[in-house]
Design a binder for these strands. Structure first.
Lengths: 359, 359
DNA sequence: CTGTTAGCGCCTTCAA
DNA sequence: TTGAAGGCGCTAACAG
């Protein structure tokens, strides 16, 4: 027993398929009250559900929004996804999800898959990579996006433009002031702390990480401080933990047995999840925050706000970012920044909490 | 410039569309090597991307898996979503996301939307509700699912069957032993604690919450203990916080000024997020865990594992649950539990940590 | 305002 | 093995 079709509904109502279509879906033309009612009843009694595939084929548009993230279980992406979902609902569209682990090659596949499904627009979240080894894949991704846009697709990228991408019609970049905010964080931190700084960063070439590192160093310089040392590791909790272990050894070593005389460190992890990992490592090594080291993160992940000591961080309106990126791809909103260069309204906020309270 | 079509590719390669189709997509028939190569080159040079909508229309199947959750930003659902995503990838399908806030009416809409898109299968996560006020919507949801299944759709529900649903062909329920595990948790807790217990529960009628409450009470009874008092609130962090505030007053009140002599409480929050909220409230009220009260949650949310004091909880293999639910809807896996009643492999594990260490 | 006529892009019998 | 023809379900131009 297959799902009933529009034709069946039309037949039952004694009208033409076209008329039935006009009644059941929003058409410019308004059929007569009486006939409309009959059609609706017929549809109802048959349990008619329009075939979106067929509609899409006919209208060449699908009502789909493609979302690309590294990992949907990462609270950073989950928050953005929520925003995307909300905006999608406003537009009466559904969201198609693709997770790529951040690999440009996978992202390219995802874009192609979205294009195949004729997604009306695509939102790409997750740090871009400028690493040598990703160059080729980035180029392919850029080409794929280009083609997609040329065929009328709309794209919004959170953060940085895809490396090597031109800016075709319908291609939007939602700028996130990572660098500025990291700088502001550094300034505020420097105001309350006169010791050394260390940065726990992601792999070199991860643009989001790089930006935050650069911004932080700039902020330090602006405050007349020496640049921070940099520990590169994975861009996740495990990386943070690993780095935290190293730092713990360092802190304890410098303390030379007498911890109180050891040189304390102010640690900046380029995202909250890494910061939490680092904090866990320090704790595991018997160090306490902020007594033996202070630490700050970035993102202000909601789930982590109950963590103690409360984590200093930079609040990013993740959900809003998802919403705005999605809205930027809505046909109606088009034109605001079609040149791809106008200022974006994304702002963050340095949020100092207990984890960086110098004793 | 519209995307190029199969016909264009065929023309360029000098073959018929049928042949091109056979080359470009997995068909039973194997075209000649030479001709195949020509077609592939043509497709390549045109940047041909098959139109999934058209394919779907023709084959009446879409390569789509619909996932329904309450809130994708909730780490519980995000973890399940990751599992679903993985399984979807194994099946070379994409996942369509719908968030409903847990309202059966919205869930029904989502199912209809998935059906319209001819999703091959639907995975429903998130607690069912048996509340009076949801009865009607539940019935409609059940009817919608029934129709979907009758049309060949496959469904997997995590936890409980949809209230009022019959068990049509293709309808699977992935049982989660909430009750048993809550009972086990209660037993273990009772072994190390001889004071009173309180449960912070979700709204009555939320089946997952109800199960955990019931199981916990059973466990207590099995240990010869009096039933725990129950505080009903929202099934999220805010609810946990609110309940925590009340409990704090209670604890401090009973202490009558001399906190040490106050009756301590062992709190069981029916999920981790609520437990964290409650813990935050207690802390805000100047109480310490496990000194002034002990607390346990449920789920073992990954992001919360670094929380201190470490939260006692019940580990649930969330990602695995998502995977299994999804696989249960795969045509190949069909038949394992088509009767909908065979035992399921989901198991959890009571995990006692610091938050319930009696002083 | 309604019905008729063509496709949207692809797959799948069927005949060659 | 290949090509020709029909149809998947719906919408969008036309006529009436």
């Amino acid at each position: 027993m297959a799902a009933s079709t529009l034709t069946e509904v039309a037949r039952l109502a004694g009208v033409s398929p076209a008329t039935a279509s006009r009644v059941l879906n929003g058409s410019a033309r308004k059929p007569g009250q009486d006939i409309a009612e009959r059609v609706r009843q017929a549809a109802d009694s048959l349990g008619y559900i329009p075939n979106a595939q067929a509609q899409g084929l006919a209208k060449s548009s699908s009502g789909l929004i493609g979302l690309i993230v590294h990992d949907i279980a990462d609270p950073y992406f989950a928050a953005i996804a929520r925003g995307v979902q909300e905006a999608a609902r406003e537009q009466r569209k559904m969201v198609l999800l693709a997770t790529t682990g951040g690999a440009p090659a996978e992202e390219k596949e995802a874009v192609a898959a979205f294009a195949a499904r004729r997604a009306d627009s695509i939102v790409i979240a997750g740090s871009r990579s400028s690493r040598e080894e990703d160059q080729e894949d980035n180029a392919e991704l850029a080409a794929e996006l280009d083609r997609y846009c040329r065929n009328g697709g709309r794209v919004a990228v959170v953060g940085h433009p895809v490396v090597g991408a031109t800016a075709p019609e319908g291609y939007h970049v939602l700028a996130v002031p990572n660098q500025e905010l990291a700088g502001a964080l550094a300034s505020e931190l420097a105001a309350g702390w006169d010791g050394d700084f260390v940065i726990i960063a992601g792999p070199e070439g991860l643009l989001t990480s790089d930006d935050r590192v650069q911004g932080f160093q700039d902020g330090l310089a602006g405050a007349g401080r020496a640049p921070a040392g940099i520990l590169r590791t994975q861009f996740n909790r495990a990386g943070g933990y690993e780095a935290g272990l190293k730092l713990a050894a360092h802190i304890k070593g410098e303390g030379d047995g007498t911890r109180e005389t050891g040189r304390k460190l102010c640690i900046f992890a380029v995202n909250d999840v890494m910061a939490i990992g680092a904090a866990a490592a320090l704790r595991a090594e018997g160090l306490r925050i902020p007594r033996d080291a202070t630490i700050a993160g970035f993102d202000d992940i909601e789930t982590l706000r109950d963590f103690r000591p409360a984590l200093s961080t930079v609040r990013l309106p993740l959900e809003e970012i998802g919403r705005l990126a999605t809205r930027a791809t809505a046909p109606a909103a088009e034109g605001h920044d079609s040149d791809g260069g106008l200022p974006q309204p994304i702002t963050g906020e340095v949020t100092l909490r207990r984890s960086t309270e110098a004793a």
